[in-house]
Amino acid sequence: MRATLDMQDAVFGGSPRAERMLSAILTRQSNGEYVELRAAEVGGRIVSAGRIDPIVATAFAGIWGGATLPEYRGRGIYRALTAARVRSAMSRGVRWVHSDSTEFSRPILERAGLLKVTETVPWTWERTAC
C-alpha cells in the first residue's frame, strides 16, 4: 500500500500525502469500511494505481487516486485498472460511480461510460489560531 501511495505522490507532485492517506485507509479498514486499492506492477515497480471507495449503505462508489507513471502512459494500464475497480465495486452492489478526476483522466473515464456533470476546484482552507 505504501509503495502505491508513494507512486501516486510522485505522479501528482506537490506535498507528500502518502503517510496521511495510508493512515486514513488503514483506519477506515479497521472500522469495517471497504476500501480497495488496485495497482499494476512492472518488474516489481508500481507503475499505476487507484482505489475505489463504496459509500456505505448506498449504491454509489468513488473512484480515486488513479495515477500512472509518465513512462507507462498510453499502454491501457490505467484503463484496465479503472475497469477492474468498477467491476469490483459492481460486484458489491454499486450501481453508480463518481470521480473527481483531472483533465488527463477524464477522457479515459468518459470512454468507460462516465459522464462529466460538473467541476470542482480543489483547495485547502487554513486558518490561524485564535
Results as ranks from 00 to 15, higher is better:
I52G: 02
P16Y: 02
T120H: 11
D100A: 10
F12G: 07
Q8T: 15
M7F: 04
V35F: 02
G50S: 01
S101F: 05
F60Y: 14
A39Y: 09
E36T: 13
D100G: 09
R79F: 03
G43L: 03
H98G: 00
T58L: 02
Y72F: 15
R87L: 07
V11I: 07
R111L: 05
W123Y: 13
G113N: 05
T118N: 13
G14N: 11
T120G: 12
S48V: 03
L115S: 10
R127A: 10
S91E: 09
R111H: 09
P54V: 00
T124K: 09
I46D: 00
I46E: 01
D9G: 02
I46G: 00
A80W: 04
V56E: 11
G74W: 05
N31C: 15
L69V: 02
F60A: 07
D9M: 05
L115Q: 14
S88C: 11
A89S: 04
A89Y: 01
S15N: 12
R51D: 13
T27K: 13
R95E: 09
R73D: 07
P122W: 10
R92W: 08
M7S: 02
V42Q: 12
L22I: 06
G65H: 07
R17P: 04
P70V: 07
E19A: 15
A129L: 14
Y72R: 03
T27Q: 14
V86S: 01
I25S: 05
E103W: 10
G62T: 09
A112F: 14
G44S: 14
I108C: 02
R20P: 03
I63N: 02
G50D: 01
R111N: 06
T27L: 13
L115C: 11
P122R: 08
S101Q: 06
W64L: 14
E119Y: 07
Y78Q: 11
T118R: 15
A39C: 14
I77L: 05
P16F: 03
T58I: 05
